[in-house]
Design a protein around this nucleic acid. Structure first.
Lengths: 156, 156
DNA sequence: GCAATACCCGAGTATTTTAGTCAACTATTA
DNA sequence: TAATAGTTGACTAAAATACTCGGGTATTGC
C-alpha cells in the first residue's frame, strides 16, 4: 500500500466524477479544469482506472467518463491500487537474504501495518466521502478524533 | 500524509530499535545489516528522526541509537511524518485558483481522508506492533479483516 | 458525410524523490 | 591514542511523478 500524490489525483478525480454523475458522462476536460490536473495526465490515470473496471467511457461529443458502479461500491483502496500497481511487498519476496531472523520479523510487522491501512481504506467508499462532506455542514466534526483509539483496538 | 518506501524504512528501523532496546544503544551498522538498508541512507533517516526527537544518540564505541521514550509513546504517524516532512496539503493552500467551487470541495474531501489515515496511524504505537507480532503465534490472525467495517464506521 | 467532440494510445521529457556513495569531521571510550 | 560510531554536507544514479506532444478512433449533430 502506497499513498502518493498520484493516488490523491486519482481519488480526487473519482470524487469529482461521483459528484457530477447526475449530469451524465463527465469529460476529462471538465475534471482537468475543476481540479487543476493536466488533461494528458488524467488520460493516463483514467486508462488505468478503466482497466481496473472502476470507470467506463462514452465516446463522441457529449461523452466522457462515468463510474462503472454505484459510489458506495467503489472503495478508496481500489482507486489507489489501480493507479499505483506493483505494491512490491517487502523487498525480500520469500527468497533473498531474509531468513528466520529479525529481518523477516520486522518486515512482517510492516507488512501487517500496510495490510491494516489497506483494510482501512477498503472500508471507505466514494459515497461515504461524498456523504460525509454533505453532512458536514450540519455536524461540523465536533465528533470524530477521539473515537480513534477504539477503532484501532478493534482492528488490531 | 504520504506512505512511501522511505517511511517503511523508517518504521522498520524504529521497530528494529524497539526490539533490541534491552541490549543498550543499537548501532546503525547493526540495523543496516539486519534490515538490509544502506548505512549512509540510515544516517540520513536517523538525522531526521533525531531532529523529531524520536531517538537519541550515544557516541563513541558501544554507542548507537536509542528510542527517546517508551515504545508505547511513539506512534507510527510520527515516524512517517519525521522522514517525509512537507505534506504540502492540497496544492491550493488557501490562495490560488481555488474558490468556493467544486475544486475546494473535493480537495477537502481528500484532505479529510488524509487526516483520517493520519489519525489511524497516530493510534498505533511501536509497542502495539511489537506486541501484536509476539501474540501472533498464539492467535494466528483467524480474526481481524471483517471487524474493519465497524472500525471505519466508528471513525467516519 | 463531415466536422466537432472526446476518448485512446504511445513516445518522449522535465522535475522531483529515492536511495545510495564519498569524504571529512567530532565525540567518546578502552 | 587508536578505534568506534555518530554528524554533516555535497554529490550522484536510478526511479517515480507529472506532464507534453502528436497522432489516432468512435460518436454525434448538423
Amino acid at each position: 500500500m502506497r499513498l502518493t500524490t498520484k493516488g490523491r489525483y486519482a481519488v480526487t478525480a473519482m470524487l469529482d466524477l461521483a459528484l457530477h454523475i447526475d449530469q451524465g458522462p463527465v469529460s476529462l476536460a471538465d475534471i482537468s479544469e475543476r481540479q487543476g490536473i493536466s488533461l494528458s495526465y488524467l488520460e493516463q490515470l483514467f486508462a488505468k482506472l478503466r482497466r481496473a473496471d472502476l470507470v467506463c467511457s462514452v465516446r463522441g461529443p457529449g461523452g466522457g467518463y462515468r463510474l462503472s458502479r454505484e459510489g458506495q461500491d467503489i472503495y478508496v483502496a481500489q482507486v489507489i491500487d489501480a493507479v499505483n500497481e506493483s505494491v512490491d511487498a517487502t523487498k525480500c519476496k520469500g527468497a533473498g537474504g531474509c531468513q528466520q531472523g529479525v529481518t523477516c520479523l520486522t518486515h512482517h510487522l510492516w507488512q501487517d501495518l500496510s495490510e491494516q491501512i489497506h483494510t482501512f481504506l477498503d472500508g471507505i467508499s466514494l459515497a461515504d466521502l461524498v456523504a460525509r462532506r454533505e453532512v458536514q455542514n450540519v455536524a461540523d466534526r465536533q465528533d470524530g478524533q477521539q473515537d480513534n483509539k477504539i477503532a484501532v483496538d478493534t482492528i488490531l
